[in-house]
């Protein structure tokens, strides 16, 4: 199992697409977390985007005390979509390249191969989360130094909770991509379906349910995106007015945590069940 895990990490480490996705997530986090707010801050009242928001509030949003907001605020939607793409290309690539048959004719069984793949993905997601955190922390230090303000960091527990919550959000979407890739034995279709779901269908469903079918809100509150947003909302402690798209207190933090863990377990079991039963042609 450890050998299979090392093999998976080698594959991920050397695959440029993995780093391109990470780079996209990082750049988007920095653009929306620091670059655009900072431009709004320096252009002050002349910027219509920040009309009505006090400049001190804009600045506060970029300081180290809010680093977790900027690190994981985008995870439920855009970084989640990138994580889904990661799961789909890593697992789906084995089918499109035919490499699944190559690795399944080595020593480990199918369950061990899949478990190693998921462990490798979990490791890479952790690298993503830590990388984005480090970049956001560096930016917040830069902003604080440039504006000559105090550097108050969130407590260690808050940082760890934020990082763990962010990792779980991305892992849920990554496993969703992986299970779709196993189901369709492909890369393109899982990415298409998954991204449409994350970026469109969930938001649309939540909107329709809350405006037209409020009795069915319990269903929309059970969706992965709603729980991802709720977990991020809970661990960052952000206020609703500051929350980025997809982050809202649809359900409590504890329930969101359990629901996402449940989704991870279901996705992993479905992928394992399908992989073990199906012929590799």
């Amino acid at each position: 199992m450890s050998g299979s895990y090392r093999a998976e990490v080698l594959k991920l480490r050397k695959r440029s697409a993995v780093w391109v996705l990470f780079g996209a997530g990082l750049v988007l986090s920095l653009i929306f977390g620091y670059l655009l707010p900072y431009l709004g801050y320096v252009t002050g009242d002349e910027n219509p985007q920040t009309d009505g928001v006090p400049r001190s509030e804009i600045l506060r949003g970029m300081l180290p005390e809010r680093v977790m907001d900027n690190t994981i605020g985008g995870y439920p939607v855009f970084a989640g979509a990138l994580a889904l793409v990661l799961g789909a290309i890593v697992v789906g690539g084995e089918y499109t390249w035919g490499t699944l048959k190559t690795i399944l004719t080595q020593r480990p069984g199918r369950g061990a191969v899949l478990a190693s793949q998921f462990l490798g993905l979990a490791t890479m997601i952790a690298v993503w989360v830590l990388g984005i955190f480090a970049a956001c922390a560096a930016c917040s230090v830069g902003v604080a130094a440039a504006e000559n303000t105090a550097m108050d960091w969130p407590g260690l527990t808050a940082v760890l909770e934020g990082l763990a919550g962010g990792w779980l959000v991305l892992m849920t979407w990554c496993l969703a991509g992986a299970v779709l890739a196993v189901a369709f034995r492909n890369v393109a279709l899982p990415i298409g379906l998954g991204v449409v779901w994350i970026l469109g269908v969930e938001t649309l469903l939540a909107g329709v349910v809350s405006s037209l079918l409020p009795d069915l809100e319990f269903l929309s509150d059970a969706l992965p995106g709603a729980n991802a947003g709720a977990l991020v909302f809970s661990v960052t402690g952000m206020v609703a007015a500051d929350a980025p798209p997809g982050v809202r207190d649809a359900v409590g933090g504890g329930r969101a945590l359990l629901t996402l863990l449940g989704y991870c377990a279901i996705f992993a079991l479905l992928a394992a069940w399908t992989t073990r039963r199906r012929d590799v042609t």
Binding site: G3, S4, A7, L10, K11, T102, I103, Q106, R107, V113
Partner: peptide, 9 residues
């Protein structure tokens, strides 16, 4: 071959 060697111990 390296990664296959890892899989196959």
């Amino acid at each position: 071959l390296r990664l296959l060697a890892e899989y196959a111990a």
